[in-house]
Design a protein around this nucleic acid. Structure first.
Length: 268
DNA sequence: ATGGTAGGTACCCTA
């Protein structure tokens, strides 16, 4: 089973390259963030034609929005409101695999970016981000056991490790890599023992990015990236990880997203 | 230290 996550920054504008990724990488399940599309306008037809007939999405006008497009039918679907807002940042599905008994829950997350100032007293967006991650920690801890097979993917908007950013020193006070955010994400990871699946394939000493800002005139030459997009699994799936792929070439396509697709293959 | 780009929307917000 191949699960792919991608922040596409408008599903309507980026529909052709989502289809291109589906064709090229053949993921079974595609989780999108920042669809920026109200549900009645979601462009489902070509995804259906491409074999992704099972869809679950929650979008709104202008901002945010998450979607799960799948070749595999859903056993159940969920949509969540987080920190008292209905802002379309968290949905989940359950799928059944032949190889394990329990249905596998797949959570698609779009954690708030958090604004520019890393201070909760001066910046409500940063406070919202920290509260969001806190709430996810509590949610996973109270809703699930460590023995349940689960996958969490998405744009977490936090690069936790030293080599998840181009310069640990220069980004230590930049939102996405501050100690307080890393601490919150670490607590969320510990909630039910999430394993950072992508980093099991790449040593922590090696630079690894999934996002390059639009504001660099040559993203590849400057290579000032960050690893903001993640795939986590719980213990029952940790022994079933087969391969990973960061589809960096997508950053060079015309009208690219600033994030690239991240894919995990599991033996399921 | 600063400002750089992109998308959606409606003349500005978020990233």
């Amino acid at each position: 089973m191949k699960v792919l996550t991608w922040n596409i920054n408008s599903v309507r504008l980026r529909e052709p390259i989502v289809l291109k990724v589906m064709e090229g990488l053949a993921p079974d399940i595609v989780c999108l963030q920042e669809t920026k599309c109200p549900d009645p306008q979601f462009p489902f037809k070509n995804f259906e034609k491409a074999g992704y007939g099972h869809m679950h999405f929650q979008g709104m006008k202008g901002y945010n929005g998450v979607a799960i497009l799948s070749k595999i039918p859903f056993h159940k679907v969920h949509a969540f409101n987080r920190v008292g807002k209905n802002d379309c940042r968290h949905i989940a599905v359950e799928v059944v695999s032949k190889k394990i008994k329990k249905p596998i829950a797949i959570h698609n997350l779009y954690v708030p970016a958090g604004g520019d100032i890393p201070n909760v007293d001066e910046n409500d967006k940063f406070a919202h981000k920290l509260d969001f991650v806190d709430e996810l920690k509590d949610f996973f801890a109270k809703s699930y056991a460590r023995t349940e097979p689960m996958i969490a993917v998405g744009d977490f908007n936090i690069a936790p490790l030293e080599h998840d950013v181009w310069s640990h020193k220069q980004l230590i006070d930049v939102v996405s890599h501050t100690p307080v955010e890393v601490e919150k994400l670490s607590a969320m990871q510990k909630s039910i023992g999430w394993v950072d699946a992508i980093r099991t394939f790449v040593p922590h000493t090696e630079k690894l990015y999934t996002w390059w800002s639009y504001r660099n005139q040559d993203w590849k030459a400057s290579n000032r990236g960050r690893r903001l997009d993640h795939i986590w699994v719980t213990a029952p799936l940790a022994g079933r990880l087969k391969s990973h792929h960061i589809h960096k070439e997508a950053r060079d396509w015309p009208q690219p997203s600033d994030h690239v697709p991240v894919m995990l293959e599991l033996d399921l």
